[in-house]
Amino acid sequence: MLSRDEVLKIARLAKLSLTEKEIEFYQQRLGRILTYVEELNALATADTSVVRTIPKDAVAFREDRPIPFGDVRELLKNAPASEADSFLLPQVME
């Protein structure tokens, strides 16, 4: 069981608003999972090599050639609010 403060701290970092019920719910659930994963501490891993997940023949580079996106307005269409081709936020910033 995680403390209420710990859950609120994580929620703040993750920018998630939680209701009172949710706080209790996550205290329980997170606590349960964190207890379960403690089993990893028993394993000796000091000498393990670094995990690599990407195939060796993957090439991560591209040529420096600009390719404009077809219609940038498509990227604005999904915005909750926009104005004059900018994304618009309500009056929330100082």
């Binding site: 993750a14 920018k15 998630l16 608003s17 659930r29 997170l30 964190l34 309500p90 929330v92």
Partner: peptide, 24 residues
């Protein structure tokens, strides 16, 4: 405010399992 915009958009928009995993 901005923090509220973030927290409530995400808090209201994500379901419980997703929030659980994000927090973990």
């Amino acid at each position: 405010d901005l923090d509220d915009l973030y927290c409530r958009s995400r808090g209201e928009g994500f379901g419980p399992e997703v929030k659980l995993r994000i927090m973990l």
